[in-house]
Nucleic acid binder design. Sequence first.
RNA 1: GCGACGGUCGUCCAGUUUGGUCUAGGACAUCAGAUUGCCAAUCUGGUAACCCGGGUUCAAAUCCCGGCCGUCGCACCA
Length: 492
Amino acid sequence: MSNYDKVMKLALERGFYFPSCEIYADAPAGFWEYGPTGVSIKNKFIDLWRRELVRRDGMMEVDGCQIMSKSVFVASGHIGNFTDPIVKCTKCNSIFRADRFIEEKTGQRVPERLSNEEIDSLLKNNGLKCPNCKGDFGPVSRFNMMFRVGIGPAGEEAYLRPETCQSIFVDFSRVFKTMRGRLPLGIAQIGKSFRNEIAPRQSLLRLREFYQAEIEVFCNPKRLDDVPRFDEVKNTTLRLFKDGDGAVIAVSAGEAVEKGLIPNRLVAYYLALLTEFYEKTGIDVSRSRFRRLSDEEKAFYASVAFDFEVETSTGWLELVACNYRSDYDLKGHAETSKEKLEVVDPADQQKVLPHVFELSMGIDRSLYTILEHSYYEEQAKDETRAVLKLKPYLAPVLVGILPLMTKDGLGEKARRIHSDLKRDFDTFYDESGSIGRRYRRLEEAGAPFAITVDQTTMQDDTVTVRYRDSMQQVRVKVPDLAQFLRDSLLIK
RNA sequence: GCGACGGUCGUCCAGUUUGGUCUAGGACAUCAGAUUGCCAAUCUGGUAACCCGGGUUCAAAUCCCGGCCGUCGCACCA
């Protein structure tokens, strides 16, 4: 069984995530829901993101709407660039990207701005047929990855946002003014985005409705090396990779800038913050890399782009897109809306239209990767022990509270300890089955600790605390438990 | 979206070839009770499934058609 399958099984069995609307046969692909344990780890992941990125860097957070007006996407370029010309075979219904298909077959460039009719005649003049069945093509149509919605009784055209960042761009002016912003300013947002993927696959890895944690750093393009906090990260190791170059180069952030591997300190600073963040999620960053994208691969708005990728059982998985978007977005919104979006940079009292460096994180993929990198099996006696070695601050259950047996007042004592702790910590009380079985259940669910109430507890008011990973036990006084657990949650 | 293969308790699997003792079986998980009492113990009992819709038939988990979902390959992935 592949690791993907193991994580999938664990997710279904333990309520991390599962298909949306699964009791109905017409449930569409690409939609998944988080169950109780999944929500818990997701919320904790987001808390960690706020701590390590938003608060650390003094960013501001907003929460925008998921439905946005058509104009937003005219300005962003999604209405133009997000539509692909497609043709469908009239015989076997295969669908092809018309422009790419023509380029591939004839070698001639197909400009983006050709009309459907012009592409039609290109197909006809070159005598192109369906490569699968030699059937004729129907007329060229447009496929847009955005979900269109109709507002009000007239069905006014609007869209579900395909990326959360557009909210940040349209909010930028007000946030900057009212919150007394200064460049560089990070504005962050957690929220859902929607893309009508042609072929969603692999549960959380390719969704039609998904969570993004995005950060847009607004900056003055003349001051991209003016990063006061750069010293904090100059020794942080960045793992850089470029297709064709072969191996990953591990260099410090400072060195990466000096050697020109990264164009400026601002970009290097945020790549370093991101690396430090992911290290704290428990993902094995020695299996990660920042892949510098070639011009062909980059999004239409990006001038420099790095993908943060992590190795999983499904191959290299893109968790974060880091794009230098220049002034592409603010310029587009300024032109379309006729609003002035320049701000004054106090450094030189000059007006500037800020440039943007973006960290666009896929939350669902990150959570999947945390689960996969945290899961391991080891032989314990004749049995395989399955453990989810989640960090305490990400674990849905921090501690299980188990009476060794229910008689002699041990059950009551354990329930009392549970009720004293449950409002401050994620606890789980369990008295069913043998003690060994309960330990195994907890470690498979990722709980770092188990508290066991035994006969000694009744004499000296101590319990054993068992560590998930080492299976070692220590005795702790009951009144000290809360402090013990608080200490375990510290993020180092 | 195309093609190949597949879809049975929470999970994994048997049953489908050759329609009928299938009133759908097992393992693990889970629940209750008994027993035990520090690393998946034992016993007893219970809950729990044929993806959806249509068709053929005296009879469908099994055959046929359509849809949905999944895996893989192709294509797609701003």
